Computed example of a mutant assay.
Amino acid sequence: MHVIRTAAMPLILCAALVGVTGCAPTAPSGPSSAPTASPRHPAAADPVAEWVDQRMSQLSIEQKAASLLMLHAPGTDPAPLRALVDAGVSGLILMGDNMPATPPELSALTEAVQADAEAPVLVGIDEEGGEVQRLPWDDSAGAEQLRAAPPPVAQEAFGSRAAALSAVGVDVNFGIVADVTADPASFIAGRVLGGDPHAAADRVAAAVAGERGAVLSTLKHFPGHGAAPGDSHASVPTAPLTIDEWRAGPAIPFAAGIDAGAELVMTGHLAYPAVDAAPASLSPEWHRILREELGFDGVVVTDDMLMLQHNGLPEYADAGENAVRAVEAGSDLLLYVLPADPSEFGISVEGLVGSLVAAVGSGRVSAQRLDDAVERVLTLRRGLVSPSDVGSGE
Rank of each mutant, 00 (worst) to 15 (best):
D77F: 09
S392D: 10
H225P: 01
H198N: 13
E375G: 09
D297N: 14
L71F: 12
A119C: 05
M95V: 02
Q368S: 15
A45L: 15
D318Y: 05
D179F: 09
A340T: 04
G213M: 09
A101C: 03
V208E: 01
E105P: 04
A251K: 09
A373L: 12
V89N: 01
D116S: 06
V3Q: 03
P339G: 14
G224H: 07
G295P: 00
L306I: 13
C14A: 12
I4S: 11
A251Q: 13
A359D: 04
P42L: 15
I12D: 11
H198S: 04
D231A: 15
K220M: 05
A149H: 04
D276M: 13
E131C: 04
G312H: 02
V192C: 13
V177R: 07
S32W: 10
A206S: 07
S29G: 15
S392K: 14
A329N: 11
G295Q: 05
G22K: 12
L338T: 06
L92G: 08
S57M: 12
A163G: 14
R364K: 05
G320D: 01
F296T: 04
G159K: 03
A256C: 11
A209S: 14
L94T: 02
L270H: 09
L17S: 10
A317D: 05
L122K: 05
D171M: 06
D86Y: 00
Y316D: 05
I125V: 07
A262M: 14
A43Q: 13
M95N: 08
A101R: 11
L146Y: 06
S392M: 07
D389F: 11
S33A: 15
H198V: 15
N173V: 10
D171H: 15
R203G: 03
S362R: 07
I188N: 01
